[in-house]
Design a protein around this nucleic acid. Structure first.
Length: 597
RNA sequence: AGCCUCAUAGUUCAAGGGAUAGAACGGAAGUUUCCUAAACUUCAGAUCCAGGUUCGAGUCCUGGUGGGGCUACCA
């Protein structure tokens, strides 16, 4: 049992004995003491005043005294305003430190056979545009969440649903057919997803031209849209696709493969992966069947024009379309089908969708529909709803060319990392290949930290001109701290001052050392909180605090120059624990830490 | 119009109803004969407005103002 739980229990007992009342344990708050106050843990006494019927100071004194009598680890206490600050003994903290260093994966819960299974859907790209900044946030959140879940003892299946069918796909296919002259990624040297994306844009441009021309000839906007021959061709292509017309399907397969090759390269560079990929071209028909099934069960209803709807007015929502009047499926239909397939494939206990908050309504509806169809997991599916990434002057708009492309961005950041590193010259003696690996690690660390340190629910702003920092509250700052620690241990070997493997009991430590141990101790809470609140940002912010704390300690306290071997081993223990904890934090964020940088 | 969501230094972000609202960038000034200066130290600078609940409100409630989103036979 950890000390916080014991403190709570003993405080409960104290109230019982001192004031002869039993109170709800929720009233007892044990917090970590603010770093600017003396003490390690704080019991907030305000809520207890109703029972003590005494002044805050007096109540604090009485409870403090009781706790000190009953818990050996407490060596002193003081009451400041309504706060009872307890100070624990040096040996308590030495113990904690040694525990951190002796446990295999401190703060993590191992996965066991009967662990619940969490399926996490993320990424969910369209095959007609390359990945951009918004996808990066999605991918990094999804991947990090999967690691956080694993660290909390859950089995995890990462999944991706690729949106590979529909009218929008036909648009890029049609444009390629009309104006492509057989261009391929090979012949043009373009990455496949970018090539296909270009044709999607090309279609849009030609379509706009056509509309403008028609309107010039006197048509209204609606009329021109209706009589556009380009759009008619695209629709015809979709019908052919659904009828499995060989020519169309062949082009579809070929162009999709170009895109997948492109996506794979981007995913690889980003460092994310999936255990199982679903394609909408395979799930849409299942969705249709389920809608028909629901229709038979009376959950849905058919309108005169043959379209199928669900009435959610009793849930306070409106009516939602599930099948168009021509029998084709919509987004919702596909999500229903995909859910069915997934639950057939895996014994899922928790389904998490990492999808932007623009779809809050969609997932609310999906949850209700799945529940209505009789799926027990429908009600508590989790929509991990994250905020948009905006540019300083607003949303990214592909038509205005303000989209920040994922590949370009990563490339740019690697370049910056390379420049910064060669300025400092710390990688001398490394081969080009090794050095290049570190540039990538640092660049990606910067990007990942930048995206993940923000509360996922909030809209975030990305300024492409300032780009992403490598100094201050950044990924490289944290990586740098790790590299520094590794360097200390290398130097320790050179000097013959190897670490004894533990901190000796009986040694006393200074304020900075004390703060550092306390911060290290908090890691276990942070890991748990990250999963309960679905927030990698909690890990990121903690990692920064820890690195900051360490750097202050490092600055103030000589480690290898310390003559007293007990103190030196304490400090090396702190270095070891900090290095490992930083590595674990970054792992949870999906980022790596270098030995040198 | 209705519903959802957000609002904190010049800027980008923190702050489980708890103490003097914390960082970073940018601005001003410092620290390397010493374990990595991508670091450390110091200074200036913020809770949209009006009420309410509470011993205590950036945090909860109500109303305003302002931004974003959703309310598609698009995905």
């Amino acid at each position: 049992m950890y000390i916080e739980d014991r403190l709570k229990k003993e405080t409960l007992k104290a109230v019982q004995e001192l004031y002869s009342t039993t109170i709800d344990s929720k009233l007892i708050q044990v917090n970590s003491t603010r770093k600017d106050q003396k003490g390690d843990f704080t019991v907030v006494v305000f809520p207890l005043l109703r029972y003590s019927k005494k002044k805050p100071e007096e109540t604090g004194e009485e409870i403090g005294n009781f706790l000190k009598e009953n818990l050996d680890s407490i060596c002193s206490y003081e009451v400041v305003k309504g706060f009872l600050n307890l100070t624990l003994s040096f040996s308590y903290w030495i113990n904690i430190l040694n525990r951190i260093n002796s446990e295999e994966n401190y703060g993590f819960t191992p996965v066991s056979d009967d662990s619940p299974l969490m399926m996490i859907e993320y990424s969910s790209p369209n095959t007609n545009k390359p990945l951009h900044l918004g996808h990066i946030r999605n991918n990094l959140l999804g991947f990090s969440l999967s690691r956080i879940a694993k660290a909390n003892g859950l089995k995890v299946v990462k999944t991706n649903i690729v949106n590979d069918r529909g009218i929008h796909i036909c648009k890029s296919m049609l444009a390629w057919k009309k104006w492509g002259n057989g261009e391929t990624p090979k012949s043009s040297g373009k990455k496949g997803d970018h090539l296909v994306g270009d044709y999607y844009v090309k279609f849009d441009k030609e379509y706009k031209n056509e509309l403008a021309q028609l309107q010039k000839e006197g048509m209204s906007k609606e009329e021109s849209e209706k009589s556009s021959s380009l759009m008619a061709e695209a629709r015809e292509m979709l019908l052919k696709w659904e009828a499995e017309d060989k020519e169309v399907v062949d082009i579809w397969k070929m162009m999709n493969q170009w895109v997948y090759d492109g996506f794979d390269a981007t995913y690889k560079k980003l460092g994310v992966d999936f255990d199982k990929i679903y394609f909408e071209s395979q799930t849409w028909s299942v969705g249709k069947e389920m809608v028909i099934d629901g229709l038979n069960k009376g959950v849905f209803y058919r309108r005169d024009d043959n379209s199928v709807w669900v009435d959610l007015s009793s849930e306070g929502l409106d009516e939602k379309l599930l099948l168009r009047s021509d029998g084709t499926s919509v987004y919702m239909t596909q999500d229903i089908g995909t859910a069915r397939l997934r639950f057939d494939d895996y014994p899922i206990d928790k389904m998490v969708y990492v999808v932007g908050n623009e779809q809050d309504y969609h997932f609310k509806v999906l949850s209700i529909i799945l529940d209505k169809l009789g799926f027990s997991w429908g009600k508590d599916l989790v929509h991990f709803s994250y905020g948009m990434v905006e540019l300083p002057d607003g949303k990214m708009k592909s038509r205005e060319g303000t989209v920040v492309d994922a590949d370009d961005l990563m490339e740019e950041m690697v370049k910056t990392a390379r420049e910064m590193s060669s300025e400092s010259g710390k990688l001398q003696g490394y081969s080009t290949v090794e050095a290049e690996k570190i540039y990538e690690m640092v660049a990606l660390g910067a990007l990942k930290y930048f995206m993940l340190k923000v509360d996922p629910r909030k809209t975030m702003t990305f300024n492409p001109h300032d780009s992403i920092d490598f100094n201050g509250n950044t990924g490289p700052f944290i990586q740098y701290t790790h590299a520094r620690i590794k360097s200390v241990f290398r130097k320790a070997i050179d000097k013959g001052l190897e670490w004894s493997g533990s901190a000796p009991d009986g040694v006393e430590f200074n304020k900075k050392e004390h703060d550092l141990i306390r911060t290290l101790d908090e890691f276990r809470h942070v890991v748990k909180e990250a999963i309960t609140s679905y927030s990698p940002a909690i890990i990121a912010n903690y990692a920064y605090d820890l690195a900051k704390e360490y750097n202050q300690f490092y600055h103030d306290s000589p480690i290898l120059f310390e003559e007293n071997s007990d103190i030196r081993n304490l400090r090396l223990s702190l270095c070891k624990a900090t290095g490992d904890t930083i590595r674990r934090c970054m792992w949870l964020l999906g980022a790596d830490v270098p030995e040198r940088m």
